[in-house]
Design a protein around this nucleic acid. Structure first.
Lengths: 344, 344
DNA sequence: TCGATCGCGGACAACGTTGTCATAGTCCGC
DNA sequence: GCGGACTATGACAACGTTGTCCGCGATCGA
């Protein structure tokens, strides 16, 4: 095994083009193209010469040029989400990558950090790169900026949250049904003072989950108390403060529904060590929830399923599916593990 | 707010080009180019006409063509790792994205699933797309295939594991030192029968951590016992089986060092509920480790730091840094939380 | 033996953009 | 009124690739 030097003094070597290969092999550039593309009609001996030249020069065809010339697919898909670092979205990313790979496409990702301007910037940048399609977890509610792109034939699928003002394929999870189920579950154990701790209400999922919470209260015959709702806290400190307020009020909450995985984790950390812990059901499943004590009852839904469904929808569009836009709602399952089963 | 139709009957609209814009605005294509690129020397009135035409046609310049023509940067970076879905790597991805964004580059990712062929395929595919640089978590040990690319000026930075047979920038964590420290820690609490549960030994990090384990034993005056080493198990079942074997042997292990986050999690799940749990120190930190009971002592290192260091090294190369290849080793910190502090 | 066919290879244009250079018009000072 | 400097714009080629079409020699069928 020889160890090869990485950074050569002879740095500024121009990349070999088909022209260079053709010259070295003593054929025309078109013949090189034929060899590279496995086209028929090249004499084996000629092909060998060409392949040798390709090898010698380290030639690698320029996909930009190819795509430009062919005017067809660039073999890429753009994925705009909130944060690739969040385990939930990284699960989505992985699934999207998986599906796309099977369809011969690469994934370009970008994190919007809940900033609508950044979402737009990323999506349009991807369009400039002529991605074949876009998968977007919307940060904002205005998506008219995508209309020219969609009209130009770039299919767009929204996931996790719907678009504000365009009609397009959308894959969601059952936020309302899930949260309502959490309330029903807690009420069935006798809880009457149930709090909801959610993210900023202008985030679609947060709003929907609050709606589900409200509906769940109505259905379970539990009084919906505005003062038991805290929308917005999503970092450790604010979650801790909100939780403190909710559990030390005059009529304190005996149970809490947390609106997403991050809030759940912050809440668990805030509650660790406290004596009288409220019962808790968290939206989003997370690793090790089963190993905590008490194990955490969650509203589970599958990040992979979400990514897979969205990517498959997108690829169906790319394969020519021109049916009306679809809205897919994936189920949410309550996984009872213990934290939601304590009596008040 | 008007709701706009997504999939039009008038689908097959060709994307507008600068030519179309030029025709509509009644100027030459070059003038459009000037407006799009904010070049000086265009009459404001002309520029307005052009901008109006751009807006009307939904023109968005084709970056493929631009990059082809300019022959310069494509503004992309390729990231090949094992699995974007793994929280550790998604942290890396996020950091890489962050750094790249500040430098004006997009990230294309691909998961190799520990398959060297797939790693190679992905890396070369990225090269065909003319990424400005490559970040690779090697799956295999042969990287000679990258030499032509590196010679052609594509900088490559390896992260988390070194390359097999090329000299290039590399960012690693202190695997040996970390694991040795774990052994020292356990030994200081009186453990003499310490087991190591690692991934397949042909994975670099697994091998290094085993080496660190061995060194740690020597230094701590603990007998290194081959029979207390299990290399390879990395799914729930095999980890459970290995753990069972190690803790029920004639001279059972009283403490275990687990070789990465997945193995740690499987081990914790296998040990949950068992009465006499061995002390445990896991390589890689993970969310909620502090909330388990007992809280899990880990060898922590920062995924973000790893990604950031690698991405910054890469961008330094892209900015012309031609110094000899560097090897950066990031520290590993033992975070004592409880699971490693039980006496035998 | 002659025309038809086939296998192989090449010349050329085009994809959408930008760098270079040219040109027509305007304005200034002397 | 004229040279020169400057402004605004355009014509053209080129980036690296592939599709179209054409040519040349060999082989084949009648």
């Amino acid at each position: 095994m020889t160890t090869l030097s990485a950074i050569d003094p002879e740095r500024k070597v121009r990349r070999a083009t088909m022209n260079d290969v053709a010259r070295l092999a003593g054929v025309s550039i078109k013949t090189v193209s034929r060899v590279v593309n496995d086209e028929a009609g090249v004499h084996p001996a000629t092909a060998d010469r060409v392949l040798a030249a390709i090898d010698q020069l380290g030639f690698r065809r320029n996909l930009s040029a190819r795509n430009l010339r062919r005017g067809s697919s660039t073999g890429t898909v753009g994925l705009v989400l909130e944060d690739v670092g969040n385990p939930f979205y990284s699960g989505v990313t992985r699934a999207v990558e998986e599906v796309s790979r099977l369809r011969g496409r690469q994934v370009i990702t970008g994190s919007s950090d809940e900033d609508p301007a950044r979402e737009r910037e990323l999506a349009l940048e991807f369009c400039s790169r002529r991605v074949d399609g876009l998968l977007i977890v919307p940060a904002g509610v205005q998506h008219a900026y995508l209309v020219p792109e969609m009209r130009a034939g770039t299919p767009v699928v929204f996931l996790d949250r719907p678009a504000g003002d365009v009609v397009a394929d959308t894959v969601l999870v059952d936020n309302v049904g899930g949260t309502a189920e959490a309330v029903r579950h807690l009420a069935s154990f006798g809880h009457r003072r149930i709090a909801f701790l959610g993210d900023a209400p202008d985030i679609y999922t947060a709003g929907e989950r609050l709606r589900g919470f409200r509906e769940g209260c109505v259905r379970a015959g539990v009084r919906f108390d505005e003062s038991l709702v805290a929308m917005g806290p999503h970092d450790a400190g604010s979650v801790r403060a909100a939780l403190h307020r909710l559990t030390t009020a005059a009529e304190p909450a005996t149970a809490v529904v947390t609106g997403n995985n991050r809030i759940t984790v912050h809440a668990l950390r805030a509650l660790a060590g406290s004596v009288a812990r409220p019962a808790l059901v968290g939206f989003d499943d997370f690793e090790l929830a089963d190993l905590l004590s008490p194990p955490v009852t969650v509203l589970a839904h599958d990040a992979s399923a979400l990514g897979r469904a969205a990517a498959e929808l997108l690829h169906a569009r790319l394969d020519g599916d021109a049916s009306p836009p679809r809205r897919v709602v994936l189920p949410v399952r309550l996984v009872a593990r213990g934290s939601g089963e304590a009596r008040p």
